[in-house]
Amino acid sequence: MFGDMMGMMNKLKEAQKKVEETKKRLDTVLVDETSNDEKLKVTLTANRTFKSIEIDDELLKDKEQLEDYLIITLNKAIEKATSINEAELAAVAKDGMPNIPGMDMFK
């Protein structure tokens, strides 16, 4: 019984370590999103840290239009990054879950 418990605890610690490693790796995964007409481009990490924003000079002439572009493009970029982040972390967590009776809903 205690051997099983120790094995499960070790497996959970390993899973936690893998999750932390994955989070660090996701800092290096870049996600690009561009507006439909390519006047705005944003780059962020899969951990949702913005790295760059490129704005066409034409957009700088119209504050309201620039704001609209930023909202749409940033939201799309964040959605993409979140999807990658959640998929990667879920895969690591799934692999690291010990076989606990009644907890198979996570697999």
Rank of each mutant, 00 (worst) to 15 (best):
M1N: 08
F2C: 01
D4E: 14
D4A: 12
D4L: 13
D4K: 12
M5N: 06
M5T: 03
M5S: 10
G7P: 06
G7D: 15
M8K: 13
M9W: 08
N10Q: 14
K11N: 11
E14V: 05
E14A: 08
K17Y: 05
K17G: 06
K18M: 13
V19R: 09
V19K: 12
E21D: 13
K23Q: 15
K23W: 10
K24G: 03
D27V: 07
D27Q: 09
D27E: 08
V29P: 02
V31K: 00
D32G: 03
E33F: 04
E33R: 05
E33M: 13
S35F: 06
N36Y: 09
E38W: 06
K39L: 12
K39H: 11
K39I: 07
L40M: 07
L40D: 01
L40Q: 03
K41G: 01
T43A: 07
L44R: 01
L44Q: 00
A46Y: 02
A46V: 05
A46C: 07
N47W: 00
N47I: 04
R48K: 15
K51M: 14
S52F: 03
S52Q: 07
I53K: 10
I53A: 14
E54T: 13
D56F: 08
D56I: 09
D57P: 11
E58K: 09
L60C: 06
L60G: 04
L60F: 04
K61N: 13
D62H: 10
K63V: 08
E64R: 11
Q65M: 12
D68N: 09
Y69T: 02
Y69Q: 04
L70R: 10
I72D: 00
I72R: 04
I72V: 14
T73Q: 11
N75Q: 10
N75L: 02
N75F: 05
I78Y: 07
E79H: 06
E79V: 07
T82S: 09
T82F: 05
S83H: 07
N85P: 03
A87H: 09
E88W: 02
V92R: 02
G96R: 08
M97Y: 13
P98C: 10
I100T: 08
I100M: 10
P101A: 04
P101N: 03
G102V: 11
M105Q: 14
F106H: 09
F106T: 06
K107S: 14
